[in-house]
Structure formats: structure tokens, C-alpha cells
Write a protein that binds this DNA or RNA. Structure first.
Lengths: 192, 192
DNA sequence: GGACCTCCGTACGCCACCGTATGGAACAAC
DNA sequence: GTTGTTCCATACGGTGGCGTACGGAGGTCC
């Protein structure tokens, strides 16, 4: 966040800053000169580490795909009990911190979903998550078709929640209310 | 859609084109010169009808706020039976045509939710919709708190579905599958 | 302490879009 | 068919981001 001590930069520094810009301002915000200014440097630095803007965007997207999702799945898999695992997952997904950058990226990619660099990443991530969720419902004892539909409902609810928390935070549940909401949502999503 | 016979344009023509651009390319796409080109005219026309770009954006947002939502609510209110009414609403919301411009606008506004012109519109629309949904669940016999949480789940699922259908259409349910999904979702959302 | 390599600052041309100015079509009224 | 009004085309300057060229600072190695 802080400009710090004017050190030399690495390609990593640029991707990190790009990811941050991506989360807050979307694909359009992944712009060389503004990010350079934010890093307290100039374009000269950037074009040393990267060929062009697209390369930076691509790096940021890869970073996002690599980091999130798998990270969460790994954490959640520690919990052996299926019910508690689903609860943990939804708590992490809906809860924790409604404005953390991780899910902001997903939202920020939305309008440019058709972008040639964005589309494949988005599809891979979504497929992975949906597949995992479906598996979870199946392990809760739901049949294949039922599990698929429940996971779809759960995942779209997650997406919508992130959207709500970002766009109209005043209307999204928070803290204590959020915990209560997560409980109610799980109850509804797993009721037969 | 077609460029037509090179007639004179009205302010309405410009807002309509702006709304279309907004739906497909987001706030950034509401740009005077590209829209002028698309309309087969020039900026000269635009600046006769509007003061500047912001005025156009504002007009497009107003148009959207005025048209959608209330339109759907009016239709849905024709149906007297609460269960069938909810079904009708979700069918319209999730179903019909996943890539119609109406809900694309909502998605397109997402990344610029903080924009001074966008934020208030988004909040009013969301509040109205959530309020109406909560009311529907209440009329189905759910208590106030339960109705609020169910409506939240239903609305976020709607938002997420729109997002899914737009960003990764390959992973969203379609046609027959969609009808089956809507049924399953309603069953889950209204189960006690 | 020179030679070298890594990284960055600055200056430049290019393009897209914004907004202004202004002359002139197109149409209406009579 | 002249006058007046409505609407539009064109030309222009300004701004912000992209990408390139190139010189030079700051480390590193011997």
C-alpha cells in the first residue's frame, strides 16, 4: 500500500499492483502509467519487466487463478465432517471480509468476461468451484442431479452475495447478522 | 439495431443507444464518439441534445431504473396465487433469455458501483427488489426474519445466475435444464 | 576502480475520446 | 421562396494512456 523506500522493483511487484488495480477498477484499471505512478516509478520500469500491457494483465489473471480457489479448497478439506465442511466453506466465501480483494477480482472481471484473456481463466475457475461444490453436496447424500442443482443454487448465491456486498454494502448482511444468515442459508440449501 | 434511413435523431435515440452500449460494454462504453459512429452520425448531433457525457450516462441510468423492475413487478402482480407468483417471478428473472439486455445492465454497473451517478440508482433498485421479494415470502407464510433471509438468498441467487449466464454461459443451465433448475430452486427456497 | 549488467527516468510519436466553435443543411411557417 | 429554427458535420485543441528510444544511475565482479 505504502510507497515505501523507493527500491528497485521486480516483475512480482508489478503483478501484485496490477492485481490490486484489477480488483478495484476492473480490467481497464490495469493501466501502465497509473500503476507506475502508484508504485512511485515510471513506465521505464514496467517495459523492462514486461513486453506490454496485455502481458501484465495475463500475469495478474494467472496469479489470481493460481492463488485463490485452490487455497480455499485446501483449507476446507482439512475438515472431515461434510456438514461442517460446507459451513466452513460458505463462511469463508460469504463471510470473513466482504470487501477483501480476492472476490473483488471475480466481480471486476465480469464486464470483460468476453475478453480473450479473461474468458478462459474465468471458465476454468468456475468449473473447478462448481465441481467441488457438487461433490460436497453429493457427499452429503444428495443424488447427482439434486447435488448439481443445489450446488448451482449455492454458487450463484455466493456470486450474488459478493456482488451485493460490493455494489450495495448497505443492503448486505454483516457481522452478527451475517452469521445468522449463513446458518439460515445452509439450512435452506441442505433441507430435503 | 440497424442504422436505418439516416433520419434526424432525438435525445431518446441517444439514450437508447447509450443503454445498449452500457449493457454490453459497461460505463466505459458510454462514449460519445463510438456511439455516434454506431448511430451513423457525429458528435455534432450529440452535443445538441446533451450537455456532456455525464448527462447521457445519467439519462441512460434513469431510463433503466424507470423501465425494468417496476415493469416486472407489475406483470407478476397479476398472478393472485403466491406460489405461482414467485414461480412466475423467478422464471422471468432467471429464465426467458439469459442474454437479454435488461439484466446485462445490472452486471455492467458492477465494476463502477462506486461511481457517483451509479451508486444511488443501484441502491434504489436493489432496495426495491429486495423489499418486494421479502414481501412475497412473507405472504407465503414465513416470519419477518425468515422472509428476509430467504429473499436475500433468492435475490443473490438471481444476481449470481445472471452473472454466470453472462460470464460462463457454458456452465449455466439452459432451456429444459433451466426449467428443471427453476423448479428445484423454488422447492429448496420455499422448503421449511 | 574500471567494465559490465540491471534497472529506471525522460522524451517522443501515436491514438482515442472529450468538449467547443462555427457554418450550413433540413425543415417549418407564411 | 424567404425567414427562422432545429439539427448536424467538420475542424480544432486538450487530455490520458500505449509503446519506443535512449541515456544514465546503481549495483556487481574482478
Amino acid at each position: 500500500m505504502a510507497v515505501a523506500e523507493r527500491k528497485r522493483l521486480t516483475a512480482q511487484d508489478w503483478t501484485a499492483a496490477a492485481l490490486e488495480a484489477l480488483a478495484t477498477g476492473g480490467v481497464a484499471a490495469v493501466a501502465v502509467e497509473p500503476i507506475a505512478a502508484r508504485l512511485g516509478t515510471t513506465k521505464g520500469s514496467f517495459y523492462w519487466h514486461y513486453a506490454n500491457r496485455d502481458a501484465l494483465l495475463e500475469a495478474a489473471l494467472s496469479e489470481w487463478e493460481r492463488t485463490h480457489t485452490e487455497e480455499v479448497i485446501t483449507i476446507v478439506e482439512q475438515e472431515p465432517d461434510p456438514h461442517r465442511r460446507l459451513r466452513l466453506l460458505l463462511t469463508i466465501a460469504l463471510g470473513s471480509n466482504s470487501t477483501r480483494p480476492s472476490d473483488s477480482v471475480e466481480l471486476a472481471l465480469q464486464p470483460t468476461a468476453g475478453h480473450p484473456l479473461v474468458a478462459p481463466v474465468l471458465e476454468r475457475v468456475t468449473r473447478r468451484r462448481l465441481g467441488y461444490l457438487t461433490d460436497m453436496f453429493a457427499r452429503l447424500g444428495f443424488g447427482p442431479e439434486e447435488a448439481r442443482q443445489r450446488s448451482l443454487l449455492a454458487y450463484t448465491a455466493y456470486l450474488g452475495h459478493a456482488q451485493l456486498a460490493h455494489a450495495t454494502p448497505a443492503l448486505a448482511p454483516e457481522s452478527a447478522d451475517l452469521r445468522s444468515y449463513v446458518d439460515a442459508a445452509i439450512a435452506t440449501l441442505t433441507s430435503r
